[in-house]
Design a protein around this nucleic acid. Structure first.
Length: 577
RNA sequence: GGGGCCGUAGUUCAGCCUGGUGAGAACGCCGGCCUGUCACGCCGGAGGUCGCGAGUUCAAAUCUCGUCGGCCCCGCCA
């Protein structure tokens, strides 16, 4: 070892000891006869001091940002008025006795410190420098601790971590696949897995009743701040369980993860909410419970109103829904939100205000007597109203609710509001393609009592599916799976998969279901998102060492890239220009 | 596939709307001074294909079109 200690560990108790430290020069403060060096590694910072008489003084003065050095010296207590309370090592300093330059650094394009404001493009191009910054090192450490916590926890619960293939079979459902050409089989392709869904079900059938994996998944879709083409899931599956078992296990795991990774104590049990309740109250299937502003249904209130547009809407069965904003919004703000509502598919935004005990604004004169008792408004408040079928109006206001909360600063930081959204419908109606499709995936178990409705009114069938939501972010979802071939085929039939297709694509699963498949279920959690939230980062790129840009490029190494002609030929591939 | 924002010194940004004066600031970098600094301070200095290409114009960082790159969003993501 070139060093005896790290730059973060020396304290008063080490005073008098001779130590050797290695690290990066953060800053040299040359104040004339006295030189201070801030030496840094991922454990912290230590101040090195040299006096004018030191034979190394000139070498020390020549040091610059990010040179890598090795320092031998003696730990000394700082004079009381020179203690730096902002630094963990601020009570001591190391008096330099020997100095070795391990490697000089060119002047980096940006300062290696948290405060440096750098465009993301530059950060990604010089990722090795960006990753050297303390907050990035902290992020990746949180990620490590979170992963370790998951492994420890699940292992203690008798789970086995089992790897599944990356070179697998393409399935046209769901996201676009990344394809890998086969050299041995001309014209054939592997696909990278979107998730190990089928493999983990097969493992259940094989009797590995508790499986998990911290696993990379691949989806060739457009990117977002919280979406990368390759991302990591905590994937787990259990046999002989029902919904509550998976929920309880997941809660325990999350509690331990937050404790181990960031030292936060999360309350259990997590709140649970019916899907339709979430839509009705918050207009979204992943409500952020850190603030109020619950939607109010005013349809009954406006029954028989003289307001022409509202009356028309009510008579044809539309709902009148309002978002109670606890603020006196300006005309400009309302206009702005109206644009947003229109972009979300609403015809427009109706509104009224309540202030100093009386209503005002556009809709005020149409409020029937007694409205105060129904609405019980805060003061001041602005009510934004949308008309629409069923939960359509709710959806628009759900978006506005999130936007308004952010703009008004209503989001309470430092709170962790976990929520299970349960009782989803099994199917959804796809308006564009005019067909029924699974709300999540086709392996989800319907409620037993709803099975008779599968053929008669499939859209009424509820699913044993659950989403885990934290502060308005979907962390993951899971379900109890179908373990019976007949039922599985019936579901496939309902979503319009012909028999040959079912056999061709999912034959190996269907066959396996016939050989003693146990009841089973599980969940998959977005590991990157969880870590991003724990680290307080707005983008998962900040908790992934080497992420892609929004155009799916790796700026540092330069992927994707062209390949030589002969490499293509070997794979039987011709590029069409 | 669509929409929005951005690209000017090593970095972060101002200038652009309303074309014309030597293209500026801060940080960083280089040199000098300074024995208790820790965002050290003070003095001096260097540093620019204004992303790229075309067009309009007597004249373009500034206006127009295209293009490349980054970020955010919609679609998409079972």
């Amino acid at each position: 070892m070139l060093r005896t200690h790290t730059c973060g560990e020396l304290r008063k108790t080490h005073v008098g000891q001779k130590v050797t430290l290695c690290g990066w020069v953060r800053r040299v403060r040359d104040i004339g006869g006295l030189v201070f060096i801030d030496l840094r590694d991922r454990y912290g910072r230590t101040q090195i001091v040299l006096e004018a008489e030191s034979p190394h003084i000139n070498l020390a003065k020549s040091l610059s940002h990010q040179d890598v050095i090795c320092v031998v010296g003696t730990v000394r207590a700082r004079p009381t008025d020179m203690v730096n309370p902002k630094m963990p090592t601020g009570e001591i300093e190391v008096v330099l006795e020997d100095l070795r330059i391990l490697n000089r650094s060119k002047t980096p394009p940006f300062m290696i410190e948290d405060e440096a404001k750098v465009q993301e493009e530059t950060r990604l191009r010089y990722r090795f420098l960006d990753l050297r910054r303390p907050f990035m090192q902290r992020n990746l450490e949180i990620r490590h601790r979170a992963a370790l916590s998951v492994r420890n926890f699940l292992s203690s619960k008798k789970f086995l971590e089992i790897e599944t293939p990356f070179l697998t079979k393409s399935t046209p459902e769901g996201a676009r696949d990344f394809l890998v050409p086969s050299r041995i089989h001309p014209g054939k392709f592997y696909a990278l897995p979107q998730s190990p869904q089928i493999y983990k079900q097969i493992l259940m059938i094989a009797g590995y009743d508790r499986y998990f994996q911290i696993v990379r998944c691949f989806r060739d879709e457009d990117l977002r701040a919280d979406r990368q083409p390759e991302f990591t899931q905590i994937d787990l599956e259990m046999s002989f369980v029902d919904v509550d078992d998976i929920i309880e296990l997941t809660e325990e795991m999350m509690v331990q993860m937050f404790r181990d990774a960031i030292g936060v104590e999360v309350d259990r049990p997590f709140q649970r909410m019916d899907y339709y309740e979430a839509m009705r109250r918050f207009g979204i299937d992943k409500p952020d419970l850190r603030y109020g502003m619950e939607l109010i249904d005013l349809t009954d209130l406006f029954e028989g109103t003289e307001h022409r547009i509202v009356a028309q809407a009510v008579s044809k069965g539309d709902r009148v829904v309002a978002l109670p904003v606890p603020a006196d919004l300006s005309r400009k703000e309302i206009e702005n939100l109206t644009e947003l509502a229109k972009a979300e598919g609403a015809g427009g935004l109706l509104w009224f205000k309540f202030k100093d005990g009386k209503p005002s604004g556009q809709m005020a004169k149409f409020l029937p007597s007694g409205w105060l008792d129904v609405v019980k408004p805060q003061s001041p408040a602005t009510f934004l109203m949308v008309l629409g079928k069923d939960i359509k109006a709710h959806g628009v206001l759900g978006k506005l609710r999130v936007e308004v909360a952010q703009r008004l600063g209503l989001v309470r930081q430092g709170e962790w509001k976990f929520l299970w959204v349960v009782n989803f419908p099994l199917f959804e109606w796809n308006e564009d393609e005019n067909r029924i499709e699974p709300a999540h995936h086709m392996f989800t178990m319907p409620f037993e009592q709803d099975i008779p409705k599968l053929e008669t009114e499939p859209l009424q069938v509820r699913a044993k599916h659950y989403d885990l939501v934290l502060n308005g972010v979907e962390l993951g979802s899971g379900s109890i799976r179908i373990h019976d071939r007949e039922l599985q085929e019936k579901v496939m039939e309902i979503i319009g998969l012909p028999k040959e297709e079912r056999e061709r694509r999912f034959g190996f699963l269907l066959t396996a279901l016939e050989y003693g498949a146990p009841p089973h279920g599980g969940i998959a959690l977005g590991f990157d998102r969880i870590v991003a939230m724990m680290a307080g980062m707005g983008s998962i790129r900040d908790v992934i060492a080497f992420p892609k840009t929004t155009a799916a490029q790796a700026l540092f190494e330069g992927a994707p890239s062209e390949v030589p002609e002969d490499q293509l030929a070997e794979l039987h591939i011709k590029v069409v220009k």
